[in-house]
Amino acid sequence: MPKTLTKKRMIINIIISLIVLLIVTSLCATTGTQKISLRNALSGPGAEPGDNIDYEIFIIRLTRVLLAVIVGAALACSGVVLQAILKNPLADPYILGISSGAGLGAVIAMLVPGITLGFLGGLPIATFAFTGAIITVSLVWFIGYFSGRSQVTSLLLAGVVINAFFSAIIMLLTLIIKTEQLRSTMYWLMGNIPEKQNTLLLFSCGSFVIIGIIVLWRISNSLNIITLGEYESKGLGIDTEKTKLIAFSFAAFITAVAVSISGLIGFVGLIVPHAIRLIFGPDHRQLIPLSAIYGGIFLAIADTIARTAFGQEQLPVGVITAVTGGPFFLILLARYTRKVSWMK
């Protein structure tokens, strides 16, 4: 049984996890269908004219691995936070309609010819997906906020309705999409880490996600108390409205960033928080950073499998997370099940 968290234990666990992240990232970056010489790769772009192919492949691969880490961290962290503010262990980053909004944005970007609007190193698809995601969560938040007394129920209902509505429009649009675009649309909807050397995208998204995770970590103690209920948390001096707004907007923001990089990768945001909670206990002060780190590790490994398992043919990573994540989670559940009260 997880003991009560102390600052020392939390810091030690975070440091150990960061070391694991470093090791996994290096292993993933050196794994691939194309064999490269690590010595050549690490010797840099090459002083002499002519390309250092090993170096270029290594950088492309490393960028991809790091993007996977960023996406995994954002999704897992956002999952934890939404589970806390919705007081629902079944919540995931997509529960409030963000996936359908982003999906709709992406499909529109693929459908309309000649769209070239992109910023911060993102492609038009990413920009549209991000915009769609942000518009959708704002819409869900306003509907949820201005209707009904039980805010959580209204939010969930608004999310479900908007999800269904936008999904229908996505279905409709994929019917009229050109056949050659259909494959890339499907890849996007299943979740796929892009493979391009894109330093600007890496740094902009990376810093957005890290800032988001730090902000959410700062309110982690309030999130602990908020899971006791609104009255309890107000009685303990928590400004619940403010905390929920910060939690909701930053969770939505990092999810939108993740989705705009990689499309809709499922399971990470649901399974990783649960696995971490089963192993390390429910304290969000530790749950948030550890979920982010192990979310990144999980997706980096899943993406490495996606790009190497079938030789040159690459799979969407969303398929891998679903196929490996489900059984992995069941094993954990069987092993630790007595610790989860909502299973009773």
Binding site: G229, P282, S341
Partner: peptide, 20 residues
């Protein structure tokens, strides 16, 4: 009385009272 959604221990719950 209420039962929290996530499994906190007795000490963890009582410790939350020090939040103010």
């Amino acid at each position: 009385e209420f039962v929290p959604v996530f499994d906190f221990s007795v000490t963890e719950i009582v410790t939350m009272a020090r939040n103010p």
